[in-house]
Amino acid sequence: MSRSRRSVSLLVLAMVAAVSASCVPDPKPARQLPLRLYAIGDSITRAFDSWLIADNLSVSWVGGYHGTWQQILGIPNINAHNQRITARYGSSGRRNVMEAQNGARWDDALSQAQGVVSEQPTYVTIMLGGNDVCRDDLADLPTDEEIQQHVTDTLHYLDAQLPSGATVVVVGIPDIKRLYDVAVSEKGALGISCEAIWQTTALGFPCGSMLSPDNTEADRLYVQSRNQAYNDLLMVLVGVQNAASTRVHYHYMDAEQVAFTGDDISSIDCFHPSAQGEALLSSLTWSQGPFAQ
């Protein structure tokens, strides 16, 4: 769908959000400092294959850190949200909880959120949906209704369980077609072309819905349209929840327009963000967020 048509659809949805907002005149409590950080997400948040094979939590866009060992081992400093919080507000009272799981989808969000009861975070980030767009089969992408249900359930749960004044940031899904378009001429592990690596989607390599060499351009455009539709839904649902809540601050952050280039994509699997890509995500999401000023 073209951007202009999406804008028209979004206008309608935004009007729904505005009506919801007008029904809730109560002001929210003051925003708490983001000292207790809690990350919900998938392999992007765990920085899978971003530097070395498997998880690289130190270069996660949100929970990353850069201590002595990272310096000695030459692991990049990506200036994650966790580091930015410490730099700005100090290390006293800090928590950095990583609940993200590889392969997680929006239907896993509620279970990942359960830990907030004990952790009582003041800053929750959610970046999910990549694995809803990236399915093994093109004909297996969730419907809008399913995504809406999972998002609403999760946000309602957080609203009930988080301390007053907490902040929830929901990051949109990066444009997976852009990932395909950029990486299709790149090389992955051992110099093997990304296209060759993606041929293994038939053997279980993730994201066959976008990356399978059997897909046509129309198939990829269909998946991109779902990618856009999920993001439109996320933006509106987060807006509605923010308007309705009297306790928690909610923000949606656009990741669809992130301009990934070749170096931002994992040189191991041609699929996940590289450490540089995680740094880009951190920078863009932080700069759009409420603690940037």
Binding site: T143, A218, Y222, S225, R226
Partner: peptide
């Protein structure tokens, strides 16, 4: 989901 895919692909 299958219907959504077939319709989406045809529109694309």
């Amino acid at each position: 989901r299958v219907r959504a895919y077939l319709e989406g692909r045809r529109r694309a």
